[in-house]
Amino acid sequence: MPTSKNLVLTILLLLGLVYTPQVDAQFENLKELFTFYPNRKAVERDSTLYPSKFIAAPVVSYSPETDFAFGIGAKYLFKFAGSGDETRVSNMPITFQYTLNSQYFLYSGFEIFTNQEKWVIEGNILFQNYPRLYYGIGNGTSESAEEIYNYNQLLVEPIFLKQAFLRHLFIGAGIRYNHIYNTDFEEDGLIATEQLDGFDGSTSVGVEAAALYDSRDVILNASSGWYLEFTHGKYGEFLGGTNKFNLTRIDLRHFLKVSKKNNDVLGFQFVGRTVRNNQPFSEYSFLGSSEIMRGYREGRFIDRDLVAAQAEYRKNFKDSRIGAVVFVGAGDVYRNIDEFQFSSLKPSYGVGVRYKLDESENLNIRLDWGFGRGTNELYLGIAEAF
């Protein structure tokens, strides 16, 4: 039997070999079967309106934590009436999937712009039954310590930001609710032995202050601009909260076109996360994901603080839906950020292939093969890693 990785690579190779303009046309016709235009009649009467799209279709994804996942994905792309070219397209995705590891998850990570981008409403909604691999706390844990930690999670995080001072600067606040329950772990394993606060469930309830600078030209797959998001949350024992702690996060990205002769893009990202005081187990910083530090399973290394950075070159081939990427990054976790040393950073690098799902919105299907220190993982999904 072929392994999951070999199967995905074979599918990818065949896709590249059979790609022709005829296949492109057939794909476009198939995509239209799953695309709905809620304001089609209004656009026919008024051409200044943005033609909203609701794309719903069966989806398949892959990550090392879930194996293959199958389900339904929907993406609502729209602008409010009265918005022109000065307002970027709002994005509201909804995904429900069930995995070969008997997991399920319902997720939406949304970003909504009001008219003339006076307000930005962003956030996350997540409901899942999710097994996590655990190796202990620290950046030097052993692979042999691996054990499985199962839990249910409900995460709700809306943030409201108002345009202030500059065209692309937004300041605001939000709330974050993160409930971990129905935990299941090995009776004689590390988790049961260490008994970190919240190992058997927790509820984090916090108020966040937030600032956002976002000058990206396209939200789903930027080719130019800056993105800087900063949040600082104070969590307490109110509204069901179980722990008092502070959580600070920063996400910095920059995109630029490599040449005027092609559409190749170079992207950079830096992520930082620090948590202090009486944080529960679920609020530690986890290294590894399908978005940054690709090649490491999520939570391969865990501690209070995390820093990570990556660069990605995105190659677009002329008159083709096919594209390719190479990426490189580094990062680590720490008990205290002042322990940071360049020499101890863990590497991340890899390659990927893209297929243009929606040319007008620059939306890709992506397959990445990431490598870390003694490990490698595949990731299949929709939209770019950052």
Rank of each mutant, 00 (worst) to 15 (best):
M1S: 15
I11H: 11
L13N: 14
Y19D: 14
P21H: 03
Q26K: 10
L30S: 14
E32V: 04
P38C: 08
V43A: 11
L49A: 13
Y50M: 11
K53E: 15
V60C: 07
Y62M: 07
D67V: 08
G71Y: 14
A74Y: 05
N91F: 12
N91D: 14
Q103D: 09
W119H: 07
I121G: 01
E122F: 02
N124K: 12
N129V: 03
N129D: 12
Y134I: 02
I137D: 00
G138W: 01
N139Q: 11
E143H: 03
E146A: 14
Y149C: 01
Y149S: 01
L155Y: 10
L166Y: 07
R167V: 09
L169I: 07
G172D: 05
G172L: 09
A173M: 10
G174F: 04
T183A: 04
I191G: 00
G201F: 05
E208V: 06
A209V: 12
A210W: 03
A211I: 12
R216Q: 12
D217I: 11
E237R: 15
L247P: 00
D251V: 09
S259M: 04
L266D: 01
V275F: 02
N278K: 14
Q279L: 15
F281L: 15
E283S: 13
I292M: 15
D303G: 01
D305L: 04
V307K: 02
E312P: 11
K315E: 09
K318G: 01
S320R: 09
A324D: 03
A324Q: 03
G331Q: 09
N336R: 10
S344G: 12
S344C: 05
P347W: 10
G352E: 05
Y355K: 06
K356A: 06
L357F: 11
E359H: 07
I365N: 02
L367M: 04
L378M: 10
L378E: 01
